[in-house]
Design a protein around this nucleic acid. Structure first.
Lengths: 225, 225
DNA sequence: ACTAAACTTTAGGCGCACCTAAATTTTAGT
DNA sequence: ACTAAAATTTAGGTGCGCCTAAAGTTTAGT
């Protein structure tokens, strides 16, 4: 087995696993943009290597060794994203695609050098936690921005990193991780959300986002004033 | 055709072409550590794509488009080597192996960013010239250190970059690019070369190198005092 | 000029990850 | 509980770069 393919599959399973506890073949195939039949084939090989546990027609789940590899790749990916942003000034909407390529060839030695230069960071430019070298990853209590209700105060924790256009748009709106926001209102029927960035008292700067944007933002709720 | 394989073949042909004007199948196969039959197969595909010109049983030569790609890859390789050495403190005997992996995935955008950060450099850590973006590479008038004769003064221009152990050894001897040396003597029969590093007047620091080391160093002769 | 050795190419196969089409299993609606 | 639709797997095939073994070409020595 080619290790790049293995890493891509394990990483995809890891990401999909957060929503469902068992990842279904079609979801995996969709995510990797391969035919479901191809995913089945690869899944069987991964199961033979003990990287996933697999039940025919049911789905797939990472084993501990599979999860370890997934977390190593994710660590590489996020360290590289941050390094590209900090050291090479790559805009945050481009770092993901670059990191997708680099994550598979990063040596342990370079990983350590980058980690050190960045000062042992814990989150990437999109706010996602960087797993530790030994495979620990911070668990957070978050909500989708789309789940909030009128009046809620929250801090943006993380934005999804894989949609360049979305990221550029969020950048324009200045919706970065660590930004405090308040939900001013939610319109009935079409669920448009009016938001205010919090240090800003001027209601002229309120703006409206739709469901698609709102569900690409992870927040942590803050106590009301 | 997988582009990594194509790039590796073109780069290898470029390097071998400097010694012979037509590269023979077995030399290419040796360099790439594949079976000669495999090289033949790939050569045919490269010829079909107009990247090399090929005569059965005679050998292979880069076409202009093939050379352009080769020089782009070499530019990537050398920029990355220098970047790793300068920005990430990777020791000079390790940068080659890392660069071998990174050269194939470097985007134009990142290439430019790295080039700029390094101040548009013209040589890599081993003294090899970095091709320009449009594919020009400095031609030099050099000799192998092993070709010099007693009394010659010379400056080290370049050392071969692909032998980790050799590089570590040269580092220990402080034989870096830009170092001035003098050939003190050459022993008969076994051709051992006694060398002095030139700002050093103390003959106690003279040392002896053999043919293998001497032929991994490119020098430019200096006028006698 | 000939022949043996060295080199190169051809022929036939392999594993990889992918694909389409057909068969199987699960699911959801009545 | 049954059946139609949806999801999944199996079967069979592709291109890729690699391999070994056999056949063909060039070369160097007599």
């Amino acid at each position: 087995m080619n290790s790049q393919a293995v890493e891509d599959y394990l990483k995809a399973i890891y990401k999909l696993q957060s929503s469902q506890s068992m990842v279904v073949t079609s979801a995996l195939a969709d995510h990797l943009k391969v035919n479901p039949a191809s995913a089945t084939g690869m899944i069987k090989k991964l199961a033979d290597s003990n990287l996933v546990s697999y039940e025919r027609y049911q789905g797939v789940k990472l084993t501990p060794p599979g999860e370890k590899i997934a977390l190593e790749v994710i660590r590489h990916h996020r360290l590289i994203e941050l390094y590209l942003a900090e050291a090479l000034n790559v805009p945050w909407d481009q770092v993901h695609d670059e990191a997708e390529k680099w994550e598979h060839i990063l040596s342990e030695d370079l990983e350590d050098r980058i980690d050190k230069i960045l000062g042992y960071p814990t989150t990437d430019p999109h706010g996602a936690p960087i797993p530790s070298r030994d495979g620990n990853i911070e668990q957070r209590n978050t909500n989708l921005l789309s789940e909030l209700t009128q009046g809620d105060n929250a801090i943006i924790v993380e934005v999804s990193d894989d949609d360049t256009d979305m990221l550029r748009y969020l950048g324009k709106l200045e919706l970065y991780p660590q930004t405090n926001i308040q939900i001013i209102s939610i319109s009935p029927f079409d669920q448009l959300i009016t938001i205010r960035i919090i240090p800003n008292k001027d209601s002229n700067n309120d703006f409206v986002i739709g469901q698609k944007v709102a569900s690409s933002i992870l927040v942590s709720k803050l106590e009301e004033d």
